[in-house]
Design a binder for these strands. Structure first.
Length: 792
RNA sequence: GCCCGGGUGGCGUAAUCGGUAGACGCGGCGGUCUUAAACACCGCUGUCCUUCGGGACGUGGGGGUUCAAAUCCCUCCCCGGGCACCA
């Protein structure tokens, strides 16, 4: 329970370690502020300019906050080589981290200042015809001439007022203003104008760019908007030379460098970074001259963990009277129990009892009133599970040495760039700050190598899909009434699933209902039907006076939500079918990693299966005329099920594991009918069915298990291993193809050799007529499964 | 626009290495039981043609490689998810 002080004491303890180790720091930055939630949010928690919880817009605000230096780990976080995680999650994290290779190039200003610029295309420097700074860039003030001052100030104020949402609007026309200042292009000494525009973001790179309009679409649009020079420096093969004054879009593609001094003629490709010859040449040339160097830039920002909220663990820091900051000496720093909630700012900011404290020297000081992002608590909880009441550290090193890392972790893919990224970072930071040192020591004492054990929190991860709402057709309505101004005003509405389309003036499926207005899909149109109070509504099967609210409208397949009325209540299902049936159906009816729409009809098959297992396991079996052959056949089925279920469970293929168990069920029912199976074979097969099913249907299998005379729980039984001799097929089907098409199937021994297989194929009854149609030119034999005869 | 998934019967899905397409289940059809219905049980169920022997077609579309393609290659279309003025 992460809100319990026994837990968050250790969250705070970890924060303190992070602070002492330089991972946690206080910084001033432009951050996401949610006016709705009255708090700042991490970048990861802002989606399309809106907060991920309530979907309300977020604004940008400059504030001093606590950050974690997750960017220190950017490169290591890109390395997934030691873990088995889903491709989409790895791709999302990779994109989120956003590594770009390029160069940092320093532009000198006429004021004497310098502006470093990050670019992935240093080879196009000779085509840089202007510079652009983000509106918030510190040097804008310095650069702006008196003439341009008011224009620039107005633009910056307007940019600040613009929400993140507006700034991101696609296809927005480029805006910007000239500062009046100039920079010197370091490669050719050219004087280029410096502009301010909000398409340049302060948060990425250095907040300033060199603009190469000929070869960057955004710069091109800006150049055309403000009539700036366009100078091409890439010549595509077999094409006319580009003309900067007539180009209609930027050229981004391969070719060779032109008008670029020392790198003229060098090939340029689509490759990134040094893999592109022109980029490599430019970096080398810049480094040699000291005007630039190779550089890597990341899209990911440091993790902002301050929250102006009541809940969450208080950040255990103290502001001292002399302006310095230190860690709170005693942990936990408890949340006050009952602060005054005003609906405004966090109640902690006004709780003087909480705020007032003393520093490590006993001098009056003030507490940090912000709490930590709750993702902080979830970043390390698997470690607390090891020893939830351990008193002297976040976890018991003995347990950590034994268990870590987590073998398998499952959850939704929506956590890809939040929880699953944070927890990887957290583990790496904990490792580097020595939090796992004691556990590593224990491992060495037991002659185990701790190398790499604490690099990643979870070795294997899988994402489950989502069960969506069930599709449902709307009621078929027959509406009588009259047309009035394009609407149909009803006198009566009747539900009739079989009504002919000419059974009334408006007949069709109810698609939507809002209050007393119906959308009815007729054969050729969607009709809006107004149902006045007092109009007659008739719903067969519902007694008494009916009302429009009893009409059922169409439900499309989409996420379950109360407001859409498409939820399925698991408690009701468990009540009706039993927990084992519901669980089994959920595991059987979908590809676990994919999910899909709920189908209420299918659950009967799961229920039937459980009932069959019950009958098989609880009704005495009485063998009749026993044959070794059928006894072995049943045992084979059971042992093959062991193989399939074991393999499928490891692969999270619950649906096919259950299908294999259903096949065994079918064989057991058949065996009981024929009664030719020995009692031993029957009992062995039933026991295997129960043990294999136990993880999926734990209650019913346990009850049957004890009923069959066992004294120990089925869940304590060893996982069965298949006997490969028993599981081996006695005969296999040899497929005989003619020109790749299946023409016959014959039963053969599994160890048939190639010659015998071909001979059997040539002798197969249904092959004879094909043999008369031509000569056998070629034979492909894959005994014991297939023989293909090529005839023409 | 870029990056990931995915597209197979009426439906959910299956097919481990390029080798029997459709396992398992739902639904549907036929039958047994029943006064009847439900339940249960048995059989059939990709599409089309058929002289009932069988034949043709079939895994989003088109093209290719191969004795053989749901599976590999090229190309296009559609659906879901993520990112996106990231220099």
């Amino acid at each position: 329970v992460s809100c319990d002080p026994e837990y968050y004491k250790w969250t705070q303890w970890l924060f303190r370690r992070f602070f002492e180790g330089g991972i946690a720091y206080r910084g001033k930055a432009i951050v996401n502020w949610s006016p709705t939630l009255q708090t700042v949010l991490a970048n990861e928690q802002v989606i399309d300019g809106k907060d991920e919880r309530t979907g309300q817009p977020v604004i940008q605000k400059k504030m001093e906050q606590w950050f974690f230096a997750i960017t220190n780990y950017a490169d290591e976080l890109l390395d997934f080589s030691s873990i088995d995680w889903p491709e989409p999650v790895k791709a999302m994290q990779t994109n989120w981290i956003g590594r770009s290779e390029g160069a940092e190039v320093v532009f000198a200003l006429e004021t004497g200042d310098e502006i470093p610029v990050f670019t992935t295309r240093p080879d196009t420097l000779w085509g840089a015809t202007f510079m652009v700074l983000a509106p918030e860039h510190a040097l804008v003030d310095v650069l702006t001439t008196e003439e341009q001052r008011s224009t620039v100030d107005d633009y910056r104020i307007a940019a600040a007022a613009r929400s993140e949402l507006e700034r991101m609007e696609a296809d927005r026309e480029k805006t910007g203003v000239f500062t009046g200042g100039y920079a010197i292009n370091p490669v050719n000494g050219e004087r280029i104008p410096v502009w301010v525009a909000d398409y340049v973001l302060l948060s990425y790179g250095s907040g300033a760019i060199m603009a190469v309009p000929a070869h960057d679409q955004r710069d091109f649009e800006f150049a055309r908007q403000f009539e700036l020079r366009v100078v091409p420096v890439i010549q595509a093969a077999n094409a006319d030379p580009l003309d900067g004054s007539t180009m209609t879009e930027a050229y981004v593609g391969p070719g060779s460098m032109v008008g670029s001094g020392p790198i003229d003629g060098i090939e340029t490709r689509d490759a990134k970074g040094r893999a592109n010859p022109s980029v490599a040449a430019a970096i080398d040339w810049l480094s040699a001259r000291g005007t630039g160097e190779e550089a890597i830039s990341f899209r990911m920002r440091d993790w902002l963990i301050s929250r102006q909220r009541y809940w969450g663990a208080p950040i255990p820091m103290v502001f001292r009277a002399d302006g310095t900051i230190e860690a709170a000496p005693d942990l936990p720093v408890l949340l006050p129990e009952a602060p005054a909630f005003t609906g405004g700012p966090s109640p902690l900011t006004t709780d003087e009892q909480f705020i007032e404290t003393v520093d490590s020297e006993g001098q009056p000081a003030r507490r940090e009133s912000d709490t930590m992002d709750t993702f902080m608590c979830s970043s390390w909880y698997p470690y607390r599970y090891l020893s939830p009441h351990f008193g002297t550290a976040p976890f018991d090193p003995e347990e950590a040495a034994y268990w870590l890392p987590v073998d398998t972790y499952t959850g939704g893919a929506e956590h890809a760039t939040m929880h699953l990224l944070y927890t990887r970072f957290f583990t790496k930071a904990m490792r580097d700050l020595g939090v796992f040192d004691d556990a590593a020591h224990v491992m060495r004492e037991h002659d185990r190598d701790p190398e790499g054990v604490f690099d990643e929190p979870m070795t294997q991860s899988r994402n489950q899909g989502q069960i969506l709402g069930e599709e449902r057709p709307g009621d078929r309505l027959v509406v009588a009434g009259e047309w009035l101004d394009g609407r149909f005003v009803a006198e009566s509405v009747r539900v009739d699933d079989h009504a002919a389309s000419d059974a009334g003036p408006v007949v069709g499926e109810l698609i939507r209902r809002t209050e007393r207005t119906l959308q009815v899909q007729t054969v050729d149109a969607t009709v809006t039907v107004e149902v006045p109070e007092g109009a007659e509504v008739e719903v067969p099967g519902i007694d008494g006076v009916n009302d429009v609210t009893q009409l059922r409208h169409y439900l499309e397949v989409q996420r379950m939500s109360k407001s859409k009325g498409n939820t399925v209540n698991p408690d009701e299902l468990v009540e009706r079918y039993g927990a084992d049936t519901v669980r089994l159906y959920l595991m059987f009816a979908f590809d676990w990693e994919k999910g899909g729409p709920w189908d209420s009809r299918g659950i009967s098959g799961a229920r039937r299966f459980i009932e069959d297992v019950w009958k098989i396991g609880t009704t005495a079996y009485e063998p009749g005329a026993v044959s070794d052959e059928s006894s072995l056949a049943l045992r084979r089925s059971a042992h093959q099920a062991v193989t399939k279920v074991s393999r499928d469970m490891e692969a999270f293929k619950w649906n096919t594991a259950i299908a294999a168990l259903m096949t065994l069920r079918n064989d057991l029912l058949g065996a009981r009918r024929n009664a030719t199976v020995s009692l031993d074979a029957w009992n062995e097969s039933v026991d295997l069915l129960l043990v294999l099913l136990a993880p999926i249907a734990p209650h019913v299998t346990e009850e049957i298990w004890f009923g069959r005379g066992s004294t120990a729980s089925i869940h304590l039984q060893a996982w069965p291993e298949a006997d490969s001799t028993v599981a081996a097929d006695q005969t296999v089907t040899l497929v005989v193809q003619v020109n790749g098409k299946v023409r016959d199937r014959i039963d053969v021994s599994p160890d048939i050799d190639e010659d015998a297989a071909v001979a059997a194929a040539m002798a197969a009854e249904r092959i004879q007529k094909w043999l008369t149609k031509g000569e056998v030119r070629k034979v492909v034999a894959r005994p014991p499964n297939l023989v293909n005869l090529v005839i023409n």
